[in-house]
Simulated scan of single mutants.
Amino acid sequence: MIRLAPLIISLLLAPLQAAAFETQAREAYVIDQTTGTVLLAKNADVPLPPASMSKLMTLYMAFEAIRRGKSDGGLDLNEMLPVSEHAQSYGGSSMFLQSGETVSVEDLIRGIIVLSGNDACVVIAEALSPDGTEYGFARLMTQRAQQLGMTNSTFTNSNGWPAPGHLMSMRDLGLLSHRLIEDFPEFYPLFAETEFEFDNRVPSNRLNRNPLLTMNIGADGLKTGHTQEAGYGLAGSAKQGDRRVIFVVSGIESSAARAQESQAIVNWAFRQFAMRPMISEGEKFAEAEVWMGSEPKVGLVAAEDVSVLMPALAASELEAEVVFTGPVEAPVTKGQQLAELVFTPEGLPEKRIPLVADRDIGPGGFVSRMSTAALLLINRLVQGPGDAT
């Protein structure tokens, strides 16, 4: 591995770094979805009761089932599902469903998102469960979560009702939020609905519990949660311009504090960090020696324009280095990745940007190959047998 002398990339910015955010949440996870940069992690991998935020997993599986379609063991939006006595038995937030009636999948989905209906979750769960029970569906939730990379999540019910062993981490909830946004763009706008008056039942219960949706900060999801043990939590997302931020908080003392803290996190994430143009397509950073090629060296250039998330008031200069394994063996194809440009913005994880060959270089002719072989032989003779590798 060859590391060339450090390069200095000028950003022409003030010499300051992003201010750290001291959250009052007991657990928190904030990620810039656009770049995948983790901006804040506090007890992010601790499994804990997620309350109603675990409904996001039920929704993810419901969306998968709708996409499969009824003919493939899934669901149809217009399909009517029966409400069981078990579904009606749950207290807490509710669609106020009655056992024996049937409700459309579309209404149930909106009832989960907007009204946080515990009963609606169970209706979906029993329809998709391999044995027709909510617990059977919860086992599927755990299996699917593991497949998605959510390694600190286990489920015993579909709605987050307090129960031993029903746990999720903030990082897992952040990952799940990301997957909902990316995998189901056709359904994600439902999370921004501020009210849903189902069948004119209990009109006072029609409003979305997410306090950020009306704050004009770009928030468009996802789910609040609250139990006595977990405190107040929120899995949220906001988009401003070309950037999207996902955040999850838990263990906050009141609904008012949750709203205030969530708003503060969104403002901090957008104001303290910014996308900066860093590299231009075709910009040359170094040259690599070519082994037995028609030319002795090849240029290492950026394959495309690159913008990088930086502290909004970043250092005026950023040190970077070119890393590659060399010499490069001919032939070389233009656009072939040969190296990486490595740098670390202050307070953020290391960044690696691929560098590619700036031109084609074919294998050397007879004279070139003989010259290279002769140089290799001379080097070995100079080194002596004890130094050969």
Rank of each mutant, 00 (worst) to 15 (best):
L59D: 06
E186S: 14
Q337I: 04
E340K: 10
A14E: 15
A330K: 00
S255K: 10
A286C: 08
V367P: 02
M292K: 15
V301C: 06
G386K: 06
T224G: 00
A230I: 08
G132R: 08
G362Q: 10
A5C: 12
G165S: 04
E195T: 05
Q336I: 00
T372C: 09
A314P: 07
S316I: 08
L115H: 04
E317N: 12
A314T: 05
Q336E: 09
S54V: 04
F366Q: 06
L128Y: 03
P49D: 09
L313E: 01
I2G: 12
E289A: 11
P130I: 03
E350N: 14
K297P: 03
I31R: 13
A44I: 13
L300I: 09
R206Q: 10
P162R: 04
N216L: 03
F155V: 01
G335K: 01
L377I: 13
P385L: 13
P331E: 00
A302V: 04
N200P: 03
Q24A: 11
W268T: 02
L341K: 04
E321D: 10
G174K: 04
S250C: 12
E64C: 03
S104A: 15
E22T: 11
T344P: 14
S254M: 10
T333Y: 07
L115K: 11
L77Y: 10
A269G: 00
R243F: 01
F366I: 07
F96P: 07
V306S: 09
A192D: 02
L115G: 09
P6T: 09
N43W: 11
G335E: 04
I2F: 15
L234I: 14
I361M: 03
W268G: 02
A303R: 13
L77C: 06
T214M: 08
I113T: 01
S54R: 02
E261R: 08
A145T: 06
H86N: 14
E64I: 03
G149E: 07
F198C: 00
M57K: 01
D199R: 15
L4F: 14
H166E: 03
Y135S: 00
L13C: 08
S204D: 15
V298K: 02
D358H: 12
L355P: 05
V103Q: 00
A145M: 03
A219Y: 06
Q337P: 06
G221L: 03
I265G: 02
E340F: 11
